[in-house]
Design a protein around this nucleic acid. Structure first.
Lengths: 192, 192
DNA sequence: GTCTATAATTCGATAGAC
DNA sequence: GTCTATCGAATTATAGAC
């Protein structure tokens, strides 16, 4: 798990910093902001808790650093309107099925539900990454009208399948989800 | 705020218990399980923190009591398949627009994202209240196949509009949501 | 650059006076 | 039935030795 990212060229402190960040991201994803402790992060990173303070100042700043993440949204500008829903559902399913415990968007979502700061970050991510990616595919007008509810549907999947693990949703195969959710997203993209 | 609900007939202790429960529900809804403190609940209820312990034993049991709630799902057995999606969306929109900060399902969702116990409760609520109500309308087979994703879409709305308050979703009117989300739910109910 | 020791808070929970 | 006082545990954060 948790590819530590980066950097054979890094100094020892760089590697320590990266290890802390990886551990923090995993803990924030698994338990949310309140329940992750600096001690726990330090333990996962195999270093002393005081190192976390040294490099990141305090828990809030560590959280910020852990959330400074690129969602790696796919380029949707060459996807036809017909293919868009399926492409979207597939993209997120692939991401989340792979390593749900470490996905940036799931980390953010879990914490944003009970943490104002994380919620503000979520707003940023949506405005600067999700909405533009959608607008590239369907145009600014349709995106302005439907990006919110399309996101609601995708985050609804994230919520029920990966955060709450509702049996009725975890029981479905990725294929079943794709066949059922893609037409739904297509419906909200259609003009009313 | 926080109408203390109830009960002229109640003894003084009954009124105190009810006041505690109301305050607890509001706090759990606003901040989730971890961040609500017994001290805070007691302050809202205008009583001493030790009263909370006296009546509810501990924080976990207080949480349980706060979540022992009937979702008041509507009777869907006489709703036609065509009307079902719109009926569902309307039902939940009406509930949530009224008093989002005190709605049982939102309380539960906010806490369930970071609390195992609340998540287990959520599974219960889904299995005993949501799924049967759906099955009454569309039959057990369709319900078994689609109840999970229908719930995902409704909870996605709850998540983005009331918990995260994403501007792209809060900007929509209830009518716009109904017109856009009802066809989406209809699409996931259709056989693939 | 890493660790020990500890200060300062916060909170859940208990004991007991009135 | 309500409140005062306080314990014990957990946690963030700091100071400083090595």
């Amino acid at each position: 798990m948790t590819m530590v990212s980066v950097d054979k060229g890094g100094s020892r402190s760089d590697r320590t910093k990266a290890a802390i960040l990886t551990a923090a991201r995993a803990r924030f994803a698994a338990h949310g902001y309140e329940r992750t402790t600096i001690r726990g992060v330090a333990e996962d990173a195999r270093i002393d808790p005081s190192m976390v303070m040294r490099y990141y100042g305090n828990k809030a700043q560590l959280f910020d650093a852990a959330l400074a993440i690129d969602l790696r949204m796919p380029d949707l500008s060459n996807v036809s309107a017909d293919d868009l829903p399926r492409t979207l559902v597939r993209h997120f399913l692939t991401r989340w099925e792979g390593d749900p415990a470490d996905d940036a968007l799931l980390v953010l979502t879990r914490s944003a539900v009970t943490n104002e700061h994380a919620a503000a970050r979520m707003h940023d991510v949506f405005a600067t990454q999700v909405a533009p990616a959608l607008a590239a595919a369907v145009g600014p007008e349709v995106a302005a009208r439907s990006a919110g509810l399309v996101s609601a549907q995708l985050l609804g999947l994230a919520l029920t399948r990966y955060l709450l693990r509702l049996p009725a949703v975890t029981a479905l195969t990725p294929d079943q989800i794709e066949r059922s959710l893609a037409p739904a997203i297509a419906a909200t993209l259609k003009p009313t």
